[in-house]
């Protein structure tokens, strides 16, 4: 079974609205796009972020940009203004998703 780290095939940037964090995951090429749209399921992402994300995870496809938009609820310890986290707006969550191992061979 072939596996790579997401960081080797995609870019990511995260932002916040209230206690919701969204991560734009950008496939670096067409092959990477096929991998991320198959592997980055809400269930896989929720499992990856266990402990950091307490709410629902939605994944939206943007095929025109070869991008996924991942929307995670309960992701910031209460939201930027009252979270106890150092990373109040969850900017580093973009890099945390890049730790995911994804299968390349379907």
């Amino acid at each position: 079974m072939a596996e790579v780290l997401l960081k080797d095939i995609a870019y990511a940037r995260s932002g916040d609205k209230g206690d919701v964090s969204n991560i734009g995951v950008l496939a670096q090429d067409e092959k990477a796009w096929e991998i991320i749209r198959r592997e980055l399921t809400p269930e896989a992402i929720k499992a990856h972020f266990r402990g950091l994300v307490t709410g629902k995870v939605n994944v939206y496809e943007m095929p025109n940009l070869r991008a996924l938009n991942i929307v995670m609820e309960g992701a910031l310890g209460g939201g930027a203004t009252n979270t106890l986290r150092y990373d109040q707006t969850g900017k580093a969550l973009s890099t945390a998703i890049l730790r995911m191992k994804v299968r390349t061979d379907g």
């Binding site: 734009g24 025109n64 940009l65 938009n69």
Partner: peptide, 27 residues
């Protein structure tokens, strides 16, 4: 692309007071 996906929810309905943008159609 980083900016287009920044701080959005449903990319087919980016809702603003002036209207709703669909980011999944653009080229």
């Amino acid at each position: 692309k980083e900016q287009l996906t920044y701080e959005i929810k449903d990319p087919t309905r980016y809702m603003m007071p002036d209207g709703v943008a669909d980011f999944t159609r653009l080229k």
